[in-house]
Amino acid sequence: MLYGLVNQLIDLVKKYETDVEGPSDNIIEFQDWLNKHLKSEVEISSPEPQWIGKANGRSADSVINTSLVHLYRYAKMHAKTAIADTSFSTPDEFIYLIGLASGGSMSKTALIKQNIHEKPVGTLIINRLLNKGFIEERLGDGDKRSKIISITSLGNQHLKESMDKIKTASANVTEPLSLTEKMNLIDLLLKLEDFHWLQAEKKIG
């Protein structure tokens, strides 16, 4: 009998009981915890990537920042191609509509904040969408100074008509990545986004 393995398993169950609030005897839930625990425990030994300027002291932070800026520009190029024959003037217009279609009605401030825009820039995008009839606004119930923005049936129609092209543009940006690589990248990007979102909230507060 593999007594060593059994003892390790018992130790892991004890740690599971300690680490998890309201631990369950459901094997699937234990397996989920175990996978995350082992992932955090195991240090992945992969060779450090090479980049231009590394030998001269260029930092990993510099490379990441530059790559993010470059990828934004590539994504913008694909997005512009996707809206070439549509009623959208800029990629930001359909991004705002997607936010309203998936998140529901919200205030002007919340919509602009969701897209990380300065108020004047966000207001211009919203005004263009209003003029096209893709969105509508009404006064908020609680605060009469607050405008609530909703997507219209016309906005939904144009969004649906352009969705295939938009999806293709999004896929082109991540084309060389496998599904596993995409999931890992999402995990890392959300970690960065959450951090900077909290930092921005602290500054505003």
Results as ranks from 00 to 15, higher is better:
Q8W: 13
Q8F: 08
I10S: 15
Y16L: 00
E17I: 14
D19N: 14
V20M: 15
D32M: 10
K36S: 06
L38V: 09
E41D: 04
E41P: 02
V42P: 07
S45D: 03
S46G: 01
P47T: 08
P47C: 06
G53P: 12
D61P: 11
S62D: 02
S62Q: 01
H70V: 12
Y74D: 08
M77G: 00
K80V: 08
K80M: 10
T86C: 05
P91A: 14
P91L: 10
E93A: 09
Y96L: 09
G99I: 06
K108M: 09
A110T: 08
H117C: 04
K119P: 04
G122N: 09
T123C: 00
T123D: 13
G133Y: 03
R138T: 15
G142C: 05
D143R: 00
I149K: 05
S150W: 08
L154A: 14
Q157T: 04
Q157L: 12
I166D: 01
A169Q: 00
A171N: 09
A171P: 09
N172S: 00
N172L: 08
T174D: 01
E175A: 08
K182A: 07
M183G: 00
L185V: 14
D187F: 14
L190D: 02
K191W: 11
L192I: 13
H196K: 14
W197S: 10
W197T: 13
L198F: 14
E201F: 10
E201T: 03
E201P: 04
